[in-house]
Design a protein around this nucleic acid. Structure first.
Lengths: 205, 205
DNA sequence: GTGCAAGTTTGCACGCAGTGCAAGTTTAAG
DNA sequence: CTTAAACTTGCACTGCGTGCAAACTTGCAC
């Protein structure tokens, strides 16, 4: 276990991470089986092998547990983005990150949870995940520019990119529904890149 | 009362609309006075002069009542958009709508609720309001094009526009905080238009 | 008007969400 | 081994959101 990649790998941290994952997975599995309104926090906690109270030590609601997968994917995307050279145009960096992001597994879970998002409340948590991502990217971009860039320009650019990506996911979902086969996921990735491509090209219509 | 503007103005409809407004205003007034976690649905209902149960006949939560103002503003924007000529470029239509939208009152309330949005849950409902707006605009655009336009292109364009507008509101809020004076609101409107302007111009950096 | 049908408000009751608290259990470190 | 800090758990309590049925209001026809 390389200390650089698995920082802070004390037993405590490992246990916490494992518990968190167990809870999130338990929630996802239950959501796969039935509607979110047909099971309770108690059910998730029991399935994860922890008490109801412990569940709330990790997530404020079932919805938050589910949305943690979306957050995870977007955070890994952010990590790629953070390592791009400073002088690379932002939209190129975005396309690179979308292309590069790790195992198809992350993208697959994003796609699946997207399909499983039926309830309004869960939908709100998913929106929040995207919004948190926008905030982080904007902060990163502003920090990199060090006060050189126009505030509105940067915020609007990031907002547009993230908005475009959300649109791409929605288009994919309309077309493929719950199909998370590798080919389907390839198209999702392509749609994401194309959406950013439209931004690069500008909207002339 | 012109039947064209105030459609379905039966006594029933009027009463319902009045009650709805009373509840939303009661919620907003309470939020002005204290943190959202420091009052309950009961408080809002009492302030609005209805029973707790009736509150829930109109809104599923206090947050939804507050977010109804944002929805109202965005819907009025949508109404302007719907009346633009079909051949006008979308981004020009958007700028026109942002410029034209009615009384500064609507914009003022949007700005104020934005400043009052501290709690994560309220924030989620606000995000939902913007997202509903995206969905409606996209549906309108697709219907207008009648299958002629590229699905991804339209979705991405709308997503980018709405994302950019949200960014503009955030920038304004960072700069002006809770200042909803006419001059401040003028700058908000200008930021919104400039954000769409950046999209028209394309992001070249 | 009278009366009826449809829509609206309200109280009641129930299960569940989310949180503070304090007592128990596990881990890290001297 | 001991001790402090971190983590888990049970308990209790407030408030949310909803189904239901009884009142009440409105619209419409006779």
């Amino acid at each position: 276990m390389t200390p650089l990649e698995e920082a802070a790998a004390s037993r405590r941290e490992l246990n916490k991470a494992a518990t968190r994952e167990a809870i999130a997975n338990a929630a996802l599995n239950l959501l796969r089986a039935k509607d979110i309104s047909d099971f309770t926090v108690d059910d998730v906690a029991t399935a994860a092998g922890v008490s109801r109270r412990t569940f709330f030590n990790y997530f404020p609601s079932v919805e938050a547990a589910i949305a943690s997968f979306t957050e995870g994917y977007l955070d890994s995307l952010l990590a790629v983005l953070a390592q791009r050279p400073i002088d690379e145009p932002v939209l190129e960096s975005a396309q690179f990150a979308l292309e590069a992001v790790g195992s198809p597994r992350d993208l697959a879970v994003l796609a699946e949870t997207c399909d499983l998002t039926q309830s309004p409340q869960l939908s709100r948590f998913q929106l929040e995940a995207w919004d948190k991502c926008s905030t982080k990217i904007t902060a990163m971009a502003l920090e990199r520019l060090g006060g050189a860039g126009d505030e509105l320009y940067v915020h609007a650019l990031v907002g547009a990119v993230v908005g475009g990506c959300r649109a791409a996911v929605e288009v994919w979902h309309r077309r493929h529904g719950s199909d998370t086969s590798p080919e389907s996921l390839d198209e999702l990735r392509q749609l994401l890149i194309d959406a950013v491509g439209h931004l690069r090209r500008g909207f002339a219509s």
